[in-house]
Design a binder for these strands. Structure first.
Length: 867
RNA sequence: GGGCCAGUGGUCUAGUGGUUAUGACGCUGCCCUUACAAGGCAGUGGUCGGCGGUUCGAAUCCGCCCUGGCCCACCA
């Protein structure tokens, strides 16, 4: 008998959807577990990393759902921003500037809608339990409205300002970027040694990587520790080509050991230049425009050239005039746009800022009030917060995003902010709340849009009905869990904590769970160019969602995990094992009405498996509470496979044939419990097992809304006895295997030597082992021959500390017979009885005959071959 | 340059002071035992990255170093 994994997955996915198994109930607010699910960016399909991350989140959702929680787990999409704009531009072979703004936005919306449809399907076939009844997308007016209101609130509190100062600018995306969106990439470039001149001919060579900015050189700096400083500081040098007289100053930031130890200060090459310009109050001379071309300041034929070309031309010019001493290759880190990887420039253009710098402490206070999983991820947030130097620039010069809801007066620059009641508004279309500025000037709608993190950073506010339903908000905020990947700590996590704390005075979530990245099978990052990209949908179609989810379950939280195909294969096997075990148990229960009652008498083997079950329930539950799903999965799997299936089932088959109520009760309880423990991880096969064999007895509609198993209790002494019985069976099996005896062949006689009295377990032992004559030899029938002694380190160490070595040595070197005989040694004037601190190993002779002994931890089984 | 994480049989991996270091994959041998041969049983295989320290005892704690990954950082 078999089953078809693909078929049953599709079947249950449709059924869950039709029956709304995962629906959040807004009426039941006492026991909510809410997940601030990351809205999936709607630029394309899911890759294996997404699939794994969302599956981890799904584990949390399903685990808490089985605790009777009303789980809030929205299906949601992030639909704003540059990547979608870029995909659309590529798809239609145009740029956004070539087409009417609102027309372009429409194209972006359409593009995103298609992706949302496909990704929704992908979430479904992965078995994710997101609830479509609380669907949202960040570009919808209902969401953008809230983005705007949240901005207006902060604006009204004076936390928003318009500033004209240098900002990160991506010449390709043609927009401002926040520091968080700048990534640093190593790049090879040339350090050029250029001759400057002094009036007296003193040789002054300056090394620079950006000769194209020579026109804006306004000052030269040298380290005060430099030997030449005395001679140079305060004098003027003349720049090459442009022949500009510039002052030489001493500045401690200059490293005397880099280049020539002399720096030209330009506006604006990098952040150092910015600092110096402020420090020395220099003019901002802008050599590079918004599109990355040189401005008229640079003159000559350089004007209008793109930066890299201008650099080459400038170097040509310098070198043909003999002004270049030499050039060397160096590697430097340059800031690049996180989206398109184009090198960033600093430019000056008025932008909107949200005050961030004053709230660093507040953010960390909120962060410290959350539980971080894993804990060390909090350090990354702290590092980022500590390193912040600028307020957050929230305006972008793009189209497909939430409009900034304000108008500005043409005449006096006064800002008129939108009324909250009017939101959502688009100032490029909608009329302002007042016809004219108070000065009488016309109001112009703001054409800038928000950084997309302005939208996503209020997801906890959106989810909890902030400003829409106070009752729901009070019940739902803060949310239970923020799951996310560690690469967006400085953006999503930081901005969310910042804004939501500012707006509500309270942290946005209680727990935060950080996922790592998924690497290719060889442990390196996946890249399309390397051909090592794993397509989750392909894996899923071949092996099924449960198998892929089994891989996901084996990924440790917070760590980068390589994709392991063999885990997928093992997942398939685990599904089969679970199905077969459940089928055996289900068939055994056939004819039974309702759930089997716990009989007053259970056999020791029942107590044993129940004790193991309690242990696994306890460990799995504790692990899931801390989002260590890999641990829970491993525990449950080990129990199912190596305790329940390999041992217990074999031990009680003979009792099942006789419909023993104790065996049936135990099988039912442990079997069902195991299905439940595995249900969050492998939702399809467990639902199949539940519906086929357990539902009629327990009665829950679906395993996923049934109750998480609890510890049932057991008799510890009986459990120990049961464990001994299980060891006898294993020993007999091993002995048969080693001696070429067929497993179903009866054993004529066998003896058991054990400190545990198993005389009331005869049928428990003979049943599974087919021993015909089971004996419990008394001590005088057995001759034990000591063969060695092992020190009990855990006793000796704490008691004798520094003298432990003497006792250990004595036990190891003494004749074991003498140790049994009560040999003592003198330790610091005290007599120590060695046998109290040693385990004696013995070989056994039974009735004078040479016998095979199979040693287990609790029992020794004496066996003789039938001749 | 700073920070974080990791380094355990051929491969992947569990294990935050106490007998003989866990399990999986692989490999070898045996077994169709009536839930499962994509299964079971047994075996093979490890100087726990290196050096030093603390301790009666270290894969585990401390220090230094090496290797890999990630995050952060202005070297013009």
């Amino acid at each position: 008998m078999g089953y078809d994994q693909k078929d049953l997955e599709a079947r249950w996915q449709d059924w869950w959807e039709a029956e709304e198994i995962y629906r959040f109930d807004p009426e039941k607010l006492e026991n909510v577990y809410s997940i601030d699910n990351p809205p999936r960016y709607a630029s394309g399909g899911l890759h294996i990393g997404h699939a794994t991350h969302y599956t981890h989140i799904d584990f949390a959702a399903r685990y808490h759902r089985m605790h009777g929680n009303n789980v809030f787990f929205p299906l949601c999409f992030d639909v704003n921003g540059i990547p979608i704009e870029e995909r659309v531009e590529r798809k239609y072979g145009l740029t956004r500037k070539e087409i009417e703004r609102h027309e372009f936005v429409k194209m972006c919306e359409e593009f995103a809608e298609n992706n949302i449809g496909e990704m929704t399907r992908q979430f479904k076939i992965l078995g994710e339990s997101m609830d479509p009844s609380i669907f949202y997308q960040t570009n919808a007016e209902y969401y953008r409205r809230l983005t705007q209101i949240s901005f207006i609130r902060l604006f009204d509190r004076g936390l928003v300002y318009k500033g004209e100062r240098p900002i990160n600018w991506c010449p390709r995306c043609m927009t401002a970027m926040a520091d968080a969106e700048v990534e640093h990439r190593p790049r090879k470039t040339q350090l050029n040694y250029i001759h400057f001149s002094l009036d007296d001919g003193f040789p002054l060579v300056i090394a620079t990587t950006r000769p194209e900015l020579l026109a804006t050189c306004q000052m030269i700096a040298i380290s005060p520790d430099d030997d030449r400083a005395d001679k140079l500081v305060g004098r003027k040098a003349t720049t090459p080509i442009y022949n500009r007289e510039v002052e030489i100053v001493a500045d401690e930031k200059v490293d005397p050991n880099f280049g020539t130890g002399v720096v030209m200060i330009c506006s604006i090459g990098d952040r150092d230049d910015l600092e110096w310009i402020n420090k020395y109050d220099l003019n901002l001379e802008i050599a590079i425009d918004e599109s990355g071309h040189m401005t008229d300041i640079v003159g000559y034929e350089l004007e209008g050239m793109e930066v890299p070309r201008a650099r080459i031309v400038m170097l040509d010019r310098l070198s043909s005039s003999g002004l270049i001493e030499r050039a060397e290759d160096i590697e430097q880190n340059v800031g690049a746009c996180w989206r398109c990887h184009h090198p960033m420039e600093f430019i000056v253009k008025p932008q909107w800022f949200l005050k961030t710098m004053p709230f660093k402490e507040q953010v960390m206070e909120a962060a410290n009030d959350m539980r971080w999983f894993p804990e060390f991820m909090k350090i990354r947030l702290k590092d980022w917060v500590d390193s912040l130097q600028w307020d957050w620039v929230v305006s972008r010069q793009r189209y497909f995003a939430t409009p900034i809801p304000l108008w500005e007066c043409e005449e006096c620059g006064e800002v008129v902010i939108a009324r909250e009641d009017d939101c959502y508004v688009d100032p490029t279309i909608d009329t302002p709340p007042q016809a004219k500025c108070s000065c009488g000037g016309s109001l112009i709608g703001c054409e800038d849009v928000f950084d997309t993190w302005m939208d996503s950073s209020i997801s906890p506010l959106y989810n909890t009905f902030w400003e829409r339903d106070e009752k729901l908000f009070n019940a739902l905020y803060p949310m239970s869990l923020r799951p996310q990947a560690h690469d967006i700590i400085r953006t999503w996590a930081f901005y969310t904590i910042l804004r939501d704390t500012l707006l509500t005075g309270e942290k946005p979530f209680k727990d935060i769970m950080m996922d790592g990245f998924i690497l290719s099978e060889d442990g390196t990052p996946m890249h399309a160019s390397k051909g090592n990209v794993i397509d989750p949908i392909g894996v899923l179609e071949e092996h099924g969602a449960d198998a892929l989810r089994y891989y996901a379950a084996n990924c440790a939280l917070g760590e980068d995990n390589a994709f392991r195909m063999k885990d997928v294969t093992r997942g398939t096997r685990l599904c089969r094992k679970l199905f077969n075990v459940s089928s055996f148990i289900g068939n055994s229960l056939e004819g039974l009405e309702g759930a089997p009652e716990r009989p007053s008498e259970l056999r020791p083997t029942d107590h044993w498996i129940l004790s193991e079950f309690d242990a696994v329930v306890s460990k799995a539950t504790a692990s899931c509470e801390e989002y260590r799903f890999d641990v829970a999965m491993r525990e449950a799997e080990y129990f199912l496979w190596h305790q329940l299936a390999d041992h217990y089932l074999e031990l009680i088959k003979h009792r099942v044939r006789e419909n023993d109520p104790a065996a049936l009760y135990t099988l039912y309880t442990v079997g069902l419990g195991t299905v439940k423990l595995i249900a969050p991880f492998l939702p399809h096969i467990t639902e199949e097992c539940y519906q086929s064999w357990y539902k009629d007895h327990e009665g829950a509609k679906s395993v996923h809304v049934s109750s998480w198993p609890v510890e049932l209790g057991f008799d510890a002494d009986a459990a120990k006895k049961g464990e001994a019985v299980s060891q006898v069976a294993a020993a007999v099996r091993r002995w048969k295997s080693e001696n070429g005896v067929a497993l179903n062949q009866p054993v004529e006689t066998a003896g058991i030597v054990s400190e545990i009295d198993l005389s009331d377990c005869i049928s428990d032992i003979t049943g599974p082992t087919s021993i015909q004559d089971l004996q419990f030899p008394s001590s005088d029938e057995i001759e034990t021959k000591p063969t060695g002694a092992k020190p009990k380190f855990d006793l000796i160490g704490p008691e004798f500390r520094g003298d432990a070595g003497m006792i250990i040595g004595a036990i190891q070197s003494e004749d074991p017979v003498a140790i049994i005989g009560g040999r003592t040694i003198d330790v610091g004037g005290k007599e120590v009885v060695l046998k109290d601190y040693a385990d004696i190993q013995v070989s056994t002779v039974y009735k004078g005959e040479a016998v095979d002994t199979e040693e287990e931890e609790l029992v020794t089984v004496i066996l003789t071959k039938n001749e």
